[in-house]
Amino acid sequence: MSKDDFFIGWAETPEVDRRFMLGAGLSIITGTTAVGIGISARQRPVGSGTWNMGEIREWRGIATSEPYGMIRTLDLDGTERTALLACQGKCGVSAKIGALAGKPVVVKGSLIHRGRHAMIAVVDGLDWIREDPDGSIDGLAFPQPEPIMDVSLNGEIMDSKCWFGAMRPARGKIHKSCASLCIRGGLPPAFYVRDMKDQTALMIMTSGGYGHNKDLLPFVAESVSITGQLQRFGDLFLLDAPVSAITRL
């Protein structure tokens, strides 16, 4: 080995080391990038939800605070539709509806939606909801939950806001902490099921007609089995079951 072959960082780099570094550097960068491409191309589909945060508008309809903050409105597509309500962050707003529950209201916020599932993320501050003096409850009043059948289903408990489009992906263990924070904050929990034919369904979870909250946290974002009653609530499906009816798979 000649004197020049010995690499010393502070001295001039030997030519043989320069050539090796060039080849090795290019190989490492190319290889690492190829691995990255392989990983990125094989990720699971993350869902089609969207949140148009910049499109703040007003929505007219009837508000309710039970089981969760919701508004029944014609402003989504001209038919009677239900949109869940949420704050801009990880919290529900049912406690803030107060005396306006059951009354015509105007709600200001942006739309989060996935398929026919809709949620309005209301603006910060106190003026996100006001009574609508020109509104009417005719045709928009919330119906009573209508029992469909008793069911026993396997699936995953998640928070509705993220699954509707606030986050993508919004399922599984990597999202567990976020989903727990959302449900702890009062956002409506949802039960997501997928059958053998890859058909999916989403139900908003209740217990005895009231909303769940922290009681669900031990089961969030895990595979669970729930035995309860499937109900129709306008254009929503509810799964009414106490936490004692939930079993981890």
Binding site: G36, I37, I39, S40, R42, V46, G47, R168
Partner: peptide, 15 residues
Amino acid sequence: SFITLTYATQPEGNS
């Protein structure tokens, strides 16, 4: 590369 492929390889409507 990773971010570009992450978006390019998701099914239509997913991102």
